[in-house]
Design a protein around this nucleic acid. Structure first.
Lengths: 252, 252
DNA sequence: TCATTGTGTGCGATATACGAACAAATGTCA
DNA sequence: TGACATTTGTTCGTATATCGCACACAATGA
């Protein structure tokens, strides 16, 4: 790719959109400029462009994104067969388990939910397709990181902000790498309240017909109802069944 | 706003992203050029920019969006208080009704789901935040269109593609306008299998503390279990309760 | 072979970014 | 309160980046 095959105005604009996610819904030109580290004049042009196109509202002082911006992410969810393909299996899984079931893929240091079948809401966070969680402390994240070559997993951990969310959260990279090895050997990962007190989850990889991991699915349950030690006995067989049902459906 | 306060490279790039939603997940340069009506050279630069930034993959022939693109829509869902504020109320509503409950806002001729609490899946379509349906034939769409000045509602209908989805679908603009008047007077809208055979739904507006309609909430049920005639008696009281609980929470 | 379709590249015309300058608003302190 | 400093939005000039067109080339199929 040549130098000139890059539209920097486009890249700058995307950076401006992402700036909204980091803080509040209203951004002034100066705030957006600070968050994106772009010149005020440049950010102003991007924001006015978004407003002109209907992706943002402008009251003369603050810009806010409009729901039209969801068209962009929807372009992915609608265009990618994975979420639609996973959904009915997650519904079935969720119903049989009596708990929420989700599917996610890796994006940098985060996992991104691409489909979800929720039963009763147990987490304080509101998870929907597009939601992100840090990979290192989520069951699906463990599974997805474990599927990578160890050097890549290390590189991602190095870029991750390893926060101690609860007393249980593992934050030592070496301990996490050892955990990945266990996950690879066992074929599943269990998280015992490492993200949020009161929440346990168990995840398995979803592989395509050539054995390449393309996503992860999990079941989450309140620790009060299902202790971490029971997660495997209760849910691993169901997850394995779903995993097996999906494998032949995923090509390429 | 001056002519030069518009970054056309940015606008063109956004158009390219949206092009993915319309068809399949893989687009060649020429296909994207046709869909966007932009010059091939321009589309190529935009796509290579997306690939360079990790928003798209490129195998030398086709481009596909990556989950990173969900960051853009997520910037809205995370930044806007509305979805997070509605979610617990939808959960509660859904649980009491034993049916799916959703919330949406208007974007052009479509409604856009911003939050959803699903029970058993009854529709063939997979609805998640960001999903879109034509406003004219959805219960929440009727409510949102009814809240607009009639001239605006007419303008939106004029821009809508009024498809006859089922034998029940109302497609005559005058009939729809009359329906909006009824909805305004009654405070709710019922849809009897106008979008999909077998699905009924009932919706009410969500108003802020100044009486401005900011969203709509609905309950959907299988027509086989709950005939359209029973929707009002069964679910309107619950919807009204939720509506009343939300009003004081919505400011500005 | 000759259309047809698709991708990559060079170039002149045009659009855009950056830094600087300025005006207006806001904050600070005696 | 008034004087001054700081922050913010906007404009301007110019160096640079980008667009759209035209053309070259490759692959495909009639």
């Amino acid at each position: 790719m040549r130098e000139t095959d890059f539209v920097s105005g486009f890249a700058r604009g995307l950076k401006v959109i992402e700036a909204f996610g980091e803080t509040r819904q209203r951004l002034s030109i100066a705030e957006a400029s600070k968050l994106t580290e772009l010149d005020r004049a440049t950010v102003r042009r991007s924001l006015l462009t978004l407003a002109e196109l209907g992706y943002a509202d402008y009251d003369g002082k603050f810009f806010t994104l409009t729901p039209k911006i969801l068209r962009l992410g929807h372009a992915y969810l609608a265009a990618t067969p994975l979420p639609a393909l996973l959904q009915p299996h997650l519904d079935h899984l969720s119903e049989r388990a009596g708990q929420s079931a989700s599917a996610s893929v890796l994006d940098g240091t985060d996992i991104v939910y691409v489909a979800r079948a929720s039963q009763r809401r147990v987490m304080s966070i509101n998870l929907t397709p597009g939601s992100r969680l840090p990979a290192y402390c989520a069951s699906m994240g463990r599974v997805l990181l474990a599927a990578l070559p160890e050097s890549e997993a290390r590189a991602i951990l190095a870029r991750s902000e390893l926060r101690q969310n609860t007393a249980n959260t593992k934050t030592d990279p070496e301990e996490l790498i050892a955990e990945f090895r266990r996950v690879r050997a066992d074929g599943y990962a269990v998280i015992d309240q490492e993200l949020e007190i009161g929440l346990c989850s168990i995840a398995v990889p979803v592989e395509n017909d050539r054995g390449v991991t393309v996503a992860a699915i999990n079941i989450g349950a309140p620790a009060a109802l299902v202790p971490a030690a029971e997660m495997k006995a209760r849910y691993l067989p169901l997850l394995k069944e779903t995993q097996a049902a999906l494998r032949p459906l995923l090509h390429r």
